Simulated assay, not measured.
Amino acid sequence: MPARLSDRNALVTGSTDGIGAAIARALATEGAHVVVSGRNSARGEKVVAGIAEAGGRATFVAADLGTGAAVRELADASGPLDILVNNAAMLLNPAPTADVPEELVDGALAVNVKAAFLLTGLVAPRMAALGRGAIVNLGSINGLFGSAGSALYSMTKAAMHSMTKSWADEYGPSGVRVNAVAPGPTSTEKVAALTEHVAPILAKVPSRRASTPEEVARAVVFLASDEAANIHGAILSVDGGRSAI
């Protein structure tokens, strides 16, 4: 079967490990040239090397998306893009709202929301000028319903869902599709460290298990491909059915 993303250029933010790395690998497997980005150069180069060993194409661009200047540098360094995946985010430990320090609020908003907002504002108009492109945002089921102790993280992911719908209306008429994937608990190293918090959630999941990073990545590939040609503004949950109940 022909690769679905041949000759397309993609940028995946926060792709040096976990879900982001799985997305980068999946896009490359489908023929895209992938810009892997993140703060850790050693991990980023390892992802790029793995993609190359599998016959794919990728480059690494170091980026700490906590500032607008860094976002602009990443956009310039990535070159023309056909696909943008806004994945970079701080995964926050559950905590009472009153115990969350202001600097953590500022950091989460900067990385989880502001970076995606600014990067899309730089990339989407370039796509629109060419009349094509796909943007996939990584939301979360935490952005779909409330959870005690997760107000900050949930707020940032609800913002991603809201931006997805607004951008679908803003850029869709110019041929740029904007959608989101909302993962539930996913078997990454970071989530494994939150076992005490995650276990009660999994007990309510119809599938009774966490998703794998590869399962989330396949949803991103679908939304980035021509198979989703008339899908705009969708929030696709990959959560074992948790958000349905």
Rank of each mutant, 00 (worst) to 15 (best):
M1T: 07
M1R: 10
A3H: 15
R4G: 09
L5K: 15
R8D: 08
N9L: 09
N9H: 14
T13L: 07
S15P: 00
T16D: 05
G18F: 02
R25M: 06
A26T: 05
T29D: 11
G31P: 02
V35E: 00
V36I: 11
V36G: 10
G38F: 05
R39T: 13
R39I: 00
S41K: 08
E45G: 05
V48I: 04
E53I: 07
G55F: 10
V61D: 01
A62V: 09
A62S: 13
D64Y: 01
T67K: 15
A69W: 04
V71D: 02
E73W: 10
L74H: 00
A75L: 12
D76M: 01
A77G: 06
S78E: 04
S78A: 15
V85W: 05
A88C: 03
A88P: 05
A88T: 00
A88G: 06
M90G: 03
T97F: 07
D99P: 03
P101E: 10
E103N: 09
L104E: 14
L109P: 01
L109K: 10
V111Y: 05
N112A: 02
V113G: 06
K114Y: 06
A115G: 07
F117G: 12
L118K: 03
L122M: 14
V123M: 00
P125N: 03
R126M: 10
A128S: 12
A128H: 03
G133C: 02
I135Q: 10
N137G: 02
S140A: 05
I141A: 03
G143H: 08
G143D: 12
G143K: 02
L144W: 01
F145C: 04
L152Q: 06
Y153A: 05
Y153I: 09
M155F: 13
M160A: 08
H161I: 02
S162D: 13
M163F: 15
M163R: 01
T164Q: 08
K165A: 06
S166K: 07
S166T: 07
S166E: 15
A168Q: 13
G172Q: 01
G172L: 03
P173E: 07
S174Y: 15
R177I: 08
N179S: 03
A180E: 06
P183C: 02
T186S: 07
A192Y: 09
L194A: 02
I201E: 14
L202F: 14
A203P: 12
V205M: 12
V220A: 00
V220I: 00
D226L: 11
A228R: 07
N230K: 09
A234S: 12
I235V: 10
L236S: 11
A244T: 13
